[in-house]
Structures are given as C-alpha cells and as structure tokens.
Design a protein around this nucleic acid. Structure first.
Length: 645
RNA sequence: GCGCCCGUAGCUCAGCUGGAUAGAGCGACUGACUACGAAUCAGUAGGUCGGCAGUUCGAAUCUGUCCGGGCGUACCA
C-alpha cells in the first residue's frame, strides 16, 4: 500500500501545509499498536508541538477538523497524547488490493545494480558459511528485481590466489599426481580437495621450508607457466562447477564469473596502478616497516597503512579488488572478454577470459554495487572505497555498499556430530569458527543431503501414496525452504552458532511452516474446484459493488478479516525496508507472521463448509489475497512452493 | 591500544531512520484431530530490553560511560 500512503501524505500536506510549518517528507504514516485504535497513525502533531511550543493534543484536534474528508479514509480521530488515527474504507481498500494483486508499487531508482556474492575460493567444497553469503546475496537480488531494478549477479573467482596454490601443491608435491591423474579422478572432487587443503595447511605449519615452493607455484600460476598453470586451471574450473551445482540445488544462479586470472592477464591492475599513482592515492615507502611497498592510508585513520603493492612488486588481493571495483562502475577503460561457462536452465553463466570471443553480452557499468562479504573484511572494503575516493570517484564511493554479515560458527554439539578433532586451545570455546584451513565446517552438500533425507522421511509419513519421484522432489523443496529460511531469519550482524537441531527443524518458525501454510491454502482451492467447480478467477471477474461488499460479515469476523488483510497489504513496505536496511529478517518475519495469522484465521473460519454464499465468497477472496502475498514473499526468499507436502 | 559488532523471557532470536500495553520460536505446563492436511491451533507461566547517566512530550531504539563477549587491526584472503 505504498502508493496509497504516498497519495495520502500528499493529500494531507495540501490541506495543512500552508497553515502549519511542516514538510511533506515529515508526514510519516505509521501503523497503530492495535487495530482497534484505527489502521494508520500520524505522529506529526508532536513535531509541530515542539516547533509551535503548544500542546500536541490541541494541535491534533485542530488539524483533525481540517483533514476530513480524506480520500479513502472512513474516519479520523485524535488518540493518546496527540496522535491522529485514521480508519480506512475497508471495502474499497480490499477491492483495490485485489485488483492490484501481483503488481508492485515500487519503482526502480538505478540504471543497473551489481551484486557480488558467493565468492568461494575454488580450492575446496562450499560450506555452511558460504551458504549464508549466497542466500543473503540471492535474496537481495530477488528483492531488487521485484522493485524493478536491473540486476547483475557476479560471483568473483579467485583462481590464482594462494588457496588454489595450496591445493596444487598438495596434488603435485605431496601426492605426486600429474594433470592426467587428476582428470582420471572419480568421486566428489571438491570433497577430496577439502581434505587435501587441510592436510596441506598442516604440512606447511610443520615444514616452513616448503614456503619457497609455495611462492614458486604462485608465481608460475600468475605468469601462466606449465605445468602448474594447467593444474591450477583444472582444479579451479572443476571446483567452480561443483560450487555452481551446489548453489543450483538452492536455486541460486549468477550472470557472470569474473576471474582474478583475467584481471591479471588483461592487466587491469596496471591500469589501476597508474591511476592511483597519478592521483597520489598510494604512496611508495622508502623507509619503515613497509619499506619498498606502495601503501594506502584511510582518511579516518592516517596512522594505518595498507600495503597494496608488496616489496617484490606483486599486488595484494585488495589491489586487484580496487581494479575490479573500478571496472564494475565502468571506470577502468578496460574490459574483460567473455565466454559461456555453463548452461543453467535457459540461461548461460558467463566467465571472463583474456581472449576475445564473438557475440558476447555486456557486463559491468553498474551505478550501484553491493559486495556481499562477511564483516571480517570490512577494513579491506573500506580500503577499496578509499581507493575510489582518492581517485575522485566520490559518487561511486558512496554507491559501493559493503553488505556485511556475521560469520557462521559451529556449536559444541555440531562439532561432536561432525566427529572432528578439536585442538586443546579450542576446546573451552562456546563456538568455533568454520575454517577451511583446519578442515572444520559443515559441507553445504552434506547439509542439503541431510535435510532432504529428513524431509523425505516426513513426506513418506504423510503422503505414502505419492510416487517416489514426487516424494523426492517435494523433499528437495522442503529442504531448500528450511535452509533458506534459516539463513534469512537472523539479522545480518547476528553470529549464527550453527546447530544441526535448529537447522534441521521443520516446525515453528521455519521455512516448511511457511510452505505448509501455502499448501493448505492451495488445497482449499483445489477442493473448491473439485467439489464445486468453483474458481477464484470467476469470483474476481464478478466482484460486487463496494456498497454491498463485506457487509455480510459479523462484527467479529470483520475485525479478523480486516486485521489480516491490512497486514498482508504491507508487503511492499517490508520489501523496501529489507532493501534499505539489508536485513532479510524483515521479509522473513513478515512472511512468518502472515502465515501465523492465516493459520489462526483458518482454524476459526471454515471456507468449504460455509453455507452463506456471500460470506463464503469473502472468505475465499480473503485467503486468495493472503496466498498471493505469501507466494510473493516466499519467491523473494527463494523458497519453493510444493503442491503437497 | 585503536576500530567495528553483539549483550532483549530458561534456550535461540526478531524488534533499533525514537512513538501509544516489549514480540516470536523452542523448551515447560493445560487443552484441541473419524480433518478446508495436527509440519497446525487455543491457552498458562516466563522480561527492572547488561549497569549507570544524559537528550526528549516520549528511549529496547539516539548520546556518553562502565562491565561482559566476538571480530578486525598481515608484504593472507
């Protein structure tokens, strides 16, 4: 009802703007604490009271007489210490909402928005922490698309970094394997690398002399020398495919995979380096701890230096990230080349390359960029933004948004279940950070498998008559619902201490609860059609006149009806709130609360068995409206909707 | 040390661009299924919103300070 409120504001301002010193933007419209007190609340008399040094209630009283009549408003009254509460014209409002179903009031504001998320190092399997990142990023993308924005999803691939180097080292030096051996490897390659990476990390701790070989591999990969480059390439491409498969299970996809290897090959950094030097954004250190390095300082913390170019003239990750960020905004006057990497349904996921290809789409050139990266990297993200500012790209600096979130850690119970050996120093902690280096974490595919297995068991109990394929399909949808809701319901600054029992729950505030609610509603409509050959479309096509509409309801039922309709009508507000605050918890809680309200309504009022045709019709329209809103909310969260469950 | 974040019911968490009685889920206890699907619902118990001070007509929400915890502060990412 965003547009309704906006119109209302404008209307109110027209009526009082000349007499009272208040701006239209100050006329916030809130909800009342209880529906008994009205539907919408205006609190601006308090602001006026301050300006005019008068009693707020008196002012509210005065204004009230100026307001009526207001479009769409049945009645207005002064409440509390100086609120003005508005009562909507219920039949008109509901009819309007029904006509509006499926359409959003939100309007796009950007030319193009780029979201960077997932960003898993291509040297091991995806784990629970990566799932949080991907779910947050994907949901933000869905919300922005709903808002009408043009959105491009990028998943950055650090295919030339030390993490890949370590696995190359593991295969070549520890296991003495050739590229041919790797191509013959069968089984879950990303799982194998997970273990290998942990082994290599331990090896380096015990054998510091191996560092030399490690640097050598890194250099050879950066310079494209055989056979290390072929090994690295094979490993990273194969693992990217594994990651994409894992994410596909969750219905998460991407438009582009920008690779660090392309950034190096196409000399993005050289260009950025020149720019940074020209504008004196970075400084060469002749002396001190960072002697021989190019460093950058933050405006706010001048005593801190971040090394961008090392004394051996190699560039750090942040340096490459600055170049990448410049490219995202179209500020680098250099571009990638692209080739198709994989087909995902009816779309293609593209990857960057260093060689030209024909007929490739255009990427980048965003006007707003979200980087979904955990909070531990906020300092690095500040450095990237500082880079833009130093180059005088102030607008782009402002539009570089670090979507930061807390990590996922493991509870002592989860650790027990994982059967991992915990070091002495870690044993007393309340939780343990997920660590690829230590091989400590819940693998994404394992978790999904467990969820699916449990869901299948539950589906079997309830729907033994369905075919095995159907059951598996439903179980899969339930698993996604459970996992995605779990990842979205927390505030982003809240540390998730992962516990299997919580994550595997299908009851209470969970994704399956939401799915179950929708399934029930759908089931009613299915039965209406089967038993009575009744379709909502027919009712919608012959909506009654507003004068007669709803009048059949008793006072109590009208109040229950109204509460749920009014609540459901705020979906767009919640989406906007979610986008502005980057808190998916708002959307999640909204969907959950709406489901709760429906379930309560459902227990109180029967639909199929209702004798009075007028009342029945209104109830059908009511649950139809709830269903449509709920469906939208679930779809924005990427939670699928099974037909049965 | 400095920077960022967190501290709300027994447990896990929403609510934070200030608004009218602080909300959920789980757990505990009472109840409701020959069904519009109990993956549900109704109800009971449970909170000086970490402490103190300030700003305000109004503070869980803003400011300061203290206490407790996490993360960052690399020529790793």
């Amino acid at each position: 009802m965003i547009k309704f409120k906006a119109d209302l504001k404008e209307n109110i301002h027209k009526k009082i703007g000349e007499k009272y010193p208040i701006d239209q933007s100050e006329l916030d419209i809130d909800t009342t604490p209880s529906i008994k007190m009205g539907d919408l609340a205006l609190a601006f008399p308090f602001q006026l009271a301050k300006k005019l040094k008068r009693n707020p209630r008196e002012i509210a009283q005065e204004i009230l007489s100026l307001l009526s009549p207001l479009e769409g408003i049945e009645k207005a009254e002064v409440a509390g210490a100086g609120f003005i509460n508005l009562y909507l014209k219920k039949p008109e409002f509901f009819l309007q909402r029904l006509r509006q179903v499926g359409r959003s009031d939100l309007v796009p504001e950007e030319k193009k928005i780029i979201i960077e998320h997932t960003n898993i190092n291509p040297n091991k399997t995806a784990h629970i922490g990566h799932l949080r990142n991907a779910c947050l990023g994907d949901t933000l993308g869905r919300c922005l698309i709903h808002k009408g924005e043009k959105v491009e999803i990028q998943n950055y691939i650090d295919d030339t970094g030390v993490q890949v180097v370590d696995v190359v080292f593991g295969f070549m030096d520890l296991e003495k394997k050739s590229l041919e051996d790797l191509t013959r490897f069968e089984g879950k390659f990303d799982y194998y690398c997970w273990d290998l990476y942990a082994r290599v990390s331990t090896y380096f701790e015990k054998h510091p002399e191996a560092q030399k070989r490690r640097s050598e591999i890194l250099k050879k990969i950066e310079e494209g020398q055989a056979p290390e480059i072929q090994m690295a390439d094979h490993i990273s491409r194969r693992i990217i495919r594994a990651h994409l498969n894992t994410m596909k299970r969750l219905d998460i996809s991407y438009d582009l995979l920008p690779c660090e290897s392309s950034i190096l090959a196409l000399k993005f950094w050289d260009r950025a380096f020149t720019l940074l030097k020209e504008k004196k954004a970075i400084e060469f250190m002749d002396d001190g701890v960072n002697k021989g390095c190019w460093v950058m300082k933050l405006e706010e913390e001048a005593d801190r230096e971040k090394v961008i170019v090392r004394s051996d003239q190699t560039v750090t990750y942040v340096g490459k990230d600055i170049a990448y960020q410049l490219w995202k905004f179209g500020l680098l006057d250099k571009d990638f080349y692209y080739e198709p990497f994989i087909e995902d349904g009816d779309k293609i996921i593209w990857i960057t390359t260093s060689k030209p290809h024909n007929d490739t789409p255009e990427f980048g050139k965003g006007t707003l960029v979200y980087n979904v990266i955990d909070t531990r990297q906020s300092y690095l993200q500040q450095v990237v933004v500082q880079g833009l500012k130093s180059l005088q790209f102030f607008k782009q600096a402002e539009k570089s948004i670090h979507f930061s979130y807390e990590m996922v850690a493991l509870s002592p119970n989860s650790l027990k279940e994982l059967d991992v050996i915990v070091s002495k120093e870690d044993q007393d902690k309340d939780f343990l950070e997920v660590s690829g280096r230590k091989g400590l974490g819940v693998k994404a595919d394992d978790l999904l498998d467990r969820l699916e297995k449990k869901a299948l068991y539950e589906v079997n109990k309830r729907n033994p008559d369905l075919s095995q394929d159907q059951k598996v399909d439903i179980a899969h949808q339930i698993a996604i619902g459970a996992l995605r809701y779990f990842m979205l319901k927390y505030a982003r600054n809240s540390l998730i201490i992962f516990d299997f029992e919580d994550a595997l729950s299908f009851e209470g505030e969970t994704g399956p609860y939401l799915q179950y609610t929708c399934v029930r509603i759908n089931s009613i409509f299915r039965k209406l059609e089967e038993r009575e050959d009744l379709r909502v479309e027919d009712i919608l096509a012959h909506l009654p006149e507003k004068e007669k509409f709803i009048s059949a309801l008793s006072e109590n039922e009208l109040s229950d009806f109204w509460e749920i309709v009014l609540f459901a009508s705020q979906l767009d507000e919640e989406i906007l709130h979610t986008i502005r605050s980057l808190e998916t918890s708002h959307l999640a809680k909204f969907a959950f609360n709406l489901s709760q309200k429906f379930n309560a309504y459902y227990h109180k009022y029967s639909i199929l068995a209702e004798k009075d045709p007028e009342i029945k019709k209104i109830r059908i329209l009511t649950i139809f409206y709830i269903k449509e809103i709920l469906k939208q909310a679930l779809s924005l969260m990427g939670i699928p909707l099974p037909e049965r469950m």
